[in-house]
Amino acid sequence: MKQGKVMVDTGKCIGCGLCGRICPAHNLEIKNKKAGTVLERCILCGQCSAVCPKKAISIAGRENDQIEKPGEVRLDPGAVLDAIRFRRSIRDFRQTEVPREMIEQILEAGRLTHTAKNLQDVSFVVLQREKDRIEEMAVKVFKTVKPIADLFSPMARKNEITDHFFFFNAPLAIVVLAKDKTNGILAAQNMEFAAEANGLGVLYSGFFTMAANASRRIRKALGVPKGKKPAMTLVLGYPNVEFLRSAPHKELSVRYM
């Protein structure tokens, strides 16, 4: 069976039409009271297989990747808002190893992220053993360009490029790779929520991501495949600092029309 092909089991199909109604590609229609595909291929979003009440639709090669919904799954709105309100970028980490099962849960949050056109183009590089070596390469890149940045930015002049300028001695960093940068950023956001739910602190290292994109040597060391690029880097570990209150923010700026 061809991988990535939408399959309809006509013996199970009851012709309810739900699949056709939710298909964003308009690739399913009911004929003779049975569902069928219009085109050979579509964006393979899996919406049809997720909504079918009789499990009559599947995607070849992904038959075992679906989990039955146990009931209504809703986050508490206030808890979500508080998680956003009280999160802080962490730059001071405890030297405690992050459990493997926790790392896998964070990666799963990235894998499950919705992507534009259902590209599912996001992949990850977990930096642990090679973290210091890769960071050293990035430090060399930034030390090369710092004199130029110092000419234009007082903040840059005050920033010292130390050996741990990017990862702050955290036990773990994850580089998010993607063809479409937006997809990588969306995955990083979901991964942050999973990390913080496990009690980890998170830093988005835009500086390391810039260094990786600027340096072919770093990309080669990371094993970045052709067509992809580092979209974001998450620095992770147990925080060594406790914030007691939310930080001040600008007032809401919105227009209802």
Rank of each mutant, 00 (worst) to 15 (best):
83 A>E: 04
35 A>Y: 04
23 C>S: 10
253 S>T: 08
159 N>P: 00
140 K>Q: 15
167 F>Q: 07
123 S>G: 06
238 Y>W: 07
228 K>S: 14
36 G>V: 01
222 L>S: 08
63 E>K: 12
228 K>D: 07
235 V>Y: 11
230 P>V: 13
77 P>W: 07
28 L>N: 03
54 K>M: 05
5 K>M: 08
17 G>D: 00
190 N>A: 10
108 E>W: 04
72 E>C: 03
211 A>Y: 02
153 S>V: 04
30 I>E: 00
157 R>K: 15
251 E>H: 06
33 K>M: 13
88 R>H: 15
207 F>W: 07
10 T>L: 10
72 E>T: 09
135 E>H: 06
201 G>D: 01
216 R>M: 14
122 V>P: 03
98 V>D: 09
120 Q>M: 02
16 C>H: 00
186 L>F: 11
247 A>K: 12
158 K>H: 14
81 L>P: 01
132 D>M: 10
204 Y>R: 09
210 M>L: 14
244 L>R: 09
169 N>W: 00
99 P>S: 07
230 P>W: 08
137 M>E: 12
204 Y>S: 05
143 K>N: 08
241 V>I: 15
75 L>N: 13
57 I>V: 12
131 K>Y: 10
178 A>R: 01
256 Y>P: 04
190 N>I: 03
92 D>S: 13
256 Y>T: 11
99 P>Y: 03
192 E>G: 01
